[in-house]
Design a protein around this nucleic acid. Structure first.
Lengths: 335, 335
DNA sequence: ATGAAAGCGCTAACAA
DNA sequence: TTGTTAGCGCTTTCAT
């Protein structure tokens, strides 16, 4: 079917090694270079990367395991990474594990079978056990958003503790004392970090924590709706709520609308992650915004450095978040 | 490094062909089957699909080329497809071409080099020229959302004409006469179809079309904002607007909020595609909803039938859309 | 049912 | 610089 190196060797009268050398940046006599290039044109030759991969034990393919592609934080990061990786000849295999630990484990096994050169993972599993077999092959793993200690890999994330603390402090400064928080599942790294930020802010303000103001969702829209309803029901005196991812922020807004609660008159809200959605809300939502483009770029860059053999140390890169101020936080009079 | 078939041949004392036969569903004597399975366990053997691919000329990999992963219509479909394909051993390589024709062309070339077994494409390019070289290799192509005539491939989409007609008819029934429409770029298939639906509804109602009520956006949120502003400015008498994708719907809502227009008192709105966003709006948006899960399943199924050799004919599968009724359409008194 | 051997398209070591 | 050759790990005749 497609032309092979043999074909172009035959056509140019050169040996296989010369052709291979040409494709791998070796020195080829000018005259032969031209002959080879002519043959390539005529035969529409393209290197077969499958064969090359068999020989070099590298597939020029990166696996990405994420909890949910339908999560804008994930899809924004993937878009950014994929762009950079593809421009360097790497294909990106996506595995959406539907927020399921078992599926995540299977996804990593799948990628190992596919002989990917590296894995990028926003892990559900906090132990890192899934990734160990892959790491043993000496290939790079980069974690996104969630750190795992004692795992031999890089990690790119944001300062979650600080992000949460700042958001809660903003509410405290505006006179709020009964601040609800909707976090993710308790066993997820970012949940723990954000919760710590929340507690720290309360602590610094010398205020007591109330268990009932803390509610765990599952990072889905519907989970956000439920969490908000629960918080409102349990805490009649609650004046503000901080939601810690985009999907649950949308869910909280849905819940608020459907309960007939007004933002910010009845309830102040700080959301997470999606500037456009924040703008589409009326009044505009105040949100914490993560630098997804920077994260994506950094992850891709680190991966490429490893693959190029330019980096052997493992790093943890922590980005700062932004606060986008809207009109969803009310200043309480009786401070 | 990793164990090979040779290793397990040596360990079991069997020939390579027997081992291969075992993995490919051939007949192997019970006694040997057990020996092989023991060796697999002990050596942690896994078939090297790269080597297999070189031999069989199949990579168990599907390429997906879409205009924008950060588009929920795209990401929902990909999630669904990827799930099914992976469960059948196929990896999904995503190529986000950023709504750019040149990048789309390069993405297809990239996938050809990667020797993918099939391509799924939501095409920017209406000519289909990009895909021809791939089709020549005899491999399957499936188009999503946008049909291309005279191209030897399958296509899965929705009845766009009918969807648009129904939406506009709903507005007409509610007494609206000056209905704006925000469509995508004029050269995109769905734009043309949806525009035809709009025109048909006007025609049936015996009403004249007004060029100024038709506005082209670029399928982005910001494009939706701009399109809405333009429509409002050009048509002071406009009482309703129909927006034909999710991102522009969000943009339109942003524009409406920022101009201080009230839905539906000042302007009735029918949006597209995202039930959750529709619910998060206050009042709830009436929207046209596409069956993304069904589309995804169908696309994956068709792809698999082709790859299994169970299907040789090309089909065009057209799904119906739903109308989700919210409170964003006002009934005008003076009908 | 099983084994021997050729070869998929490429790279890399070695010789020339 | 270039050619020859031996694999990379697998599938697949063709014998047995």
């Amino acid at each position: 079917m497609a032309a092979t190196m043999k074909d172009i060797a035959r056509r140019t009268g050169l040996g296989l090694a010369t052709i291979s050398s040409y494709f791998n940046g070796g020195n080829v006599r000018e005259k032969n270079r031209i002959k080879i290039e002519e043959a390539i044109q005529e035969l529409h030759y393209e290197v077969n990367e499958v064969a090359r991969g068999l020989k070099t034990n590298a597939t020029k393919t990166i696996g990405v395991v994420i909890p949910e592609l339908n999560n804008t934080f994930c899809s924004e990061i993937i878009t950014g990474m994929e762009d950079i990786l593809r421009s360097r000849g790497y294909a990106t295999i996506i595995c959406d594990c539907r927020t399921d630990r078992q599926l995540e484990k299977e996804a990593v096994e799948f990628l190992i079978r596919k002989r990917v050169d590296g894995i990028i993972n926003m892990p559900m599993d906090a132990s890192g056990e899934n990734l160990r077999p892959f790491l043993k092959t000496g290939r790079p793993v980069i974690l996104i958003d969630r750190h795992i200690s004692n795992l031999d890999c890089d990690c790119v994330l944001v300062d979650n503790k600080k992000a949460a603390r700042h958001a809660v402090e903003l509410l405290l400064e505006n006179g709020h004392r009964e601040i609800g928080i909707i976090v993710g599942p308790k066993d997820i790294y970012t949940t723990q970090e954000r919760l710590q930020g929340y507690c720290k802010a309360y602590e610094k303000a010398g205020l007591p924590l109330k268990e009932s103001l803390i509610c765990s969702g599952d990072y889905t829209i519907q989970g956000g709706v439920r969490a908000l309803e629960e918080l409102v029901q349990r805490n009649p005196e609650m004046t503000a709520v901080f939601v810690t991812n985009y999907e649950m922020t949308m869910g909280a807004v849905i819940g608020i609308n459907e309960l007939g609660i007004r933002i910010p008159d009845d309830l102040s809200v700080i959301g997470f992650d999606n500037r456009s959605f924040a703008r589409a809300c009326s009044p505009r939502l105040t949100i914490v915004s993560q630098p997804t483009h920077e994260i994506a770029r950094e992850v891709a860059q680190i991966m490429l450095s490893h693959l190029d053999g330019k980096q052997t140390e493992h790093i943890v890169e922590k980005f700062e978040t932004d606060m986008i101020i809207g009109k969803s936080v009310r200043k309480l009079g009786n401070q």
